[in-house]
Amino acid sequence: MTTPLALAPGLPGAFAAVYAGQVSRAKASRGPLLFVATLQSVGILLLLRGVVDTGDGVTGQQVVAGSTVLVVAFVALNLLAQRFGALRGDGGLDHYAALPVPASAVVLGTAASYATFTVPGAVLTAVVGCLLYGLPLAHLWVLLLVLPLAGASLAGIGALLGLLAPRPELATVAGQLGMSAVLFLGVVPAERLPLVLQAVRALLPSSYAADALARALGPRVEITSLAPDLAICAVAAVLSLALASTAYRRAVRR
């Protein structure tokens, strides 16, 4: 005689529980890191203000957009890679392995919470940037589209790096390198980079998020001109999160 299986939570319920737990965890312990993430981007804005002419609209737009997306990369890519690397390294994944939770709920719930933490810093960076470089604050509503897509795609990559890294230290290194790539390749306009770096830039979903935001900070926002970049971001998000869910399944059953 077999004992009937207990009911398992569905994807929405499990996602909501994981998300709520992770958001609360960040409130308790991640404040200083979120501050550093924002400070880094605002610092870059201030630094580059010294070398970029206010007259050079396009460059200013790219600097503000790149710095804003950098906050997302710091948290959603770098910190999330570290989080999953640590969970994998110290046996924390056993906790979830012993709960009847869909893999995608753990990955999506955690990724969504990290993407959420980026919002205050990213908005602040964008506002400061617009003020410093004389760009239209009214166009920042585009962040409503850019931040979720940048957050989802970079969090997917962060989760994937953390779950694939054989050791937590390597997850940290991978997260840091990923963030550095976003920093160097997102803040500088594509056409000013050497060809090799342009190719690397094309592989980063953050580049498309930064480009869409940069364009939106011009004199006029045309949603149709942003659509291709945002669509690429969305595809990258779906792909990276699906791959991260597969990596999670492999990591919890060894």
């Binding site: 207990a6 009911l7 398992a8 939570p9 319920g13 499990a14 909501a16 529980a17 994981v18 709520a20 737990g21 609360s24 965890r25 308790a28 312990s29 640590a86 969970l87 110290d90 046996g91 924390g92 994944l93 906790h95 979830y96 709960l99 009847p100 939770v101």
Partner: peptide
């Protein structure tokens, strides 16, 4: 239970319960 380390006690228990359905 490193996954619970930074959660408040009540939320750690509640979340685990919700994840058990």
């Amino acid at each position: 239970e490193p996954a619970l380390r930074e959660l408040p006690v009540g939320l750690a228990v509640e979340t685990t319960g919700r994840l058990r359905g």
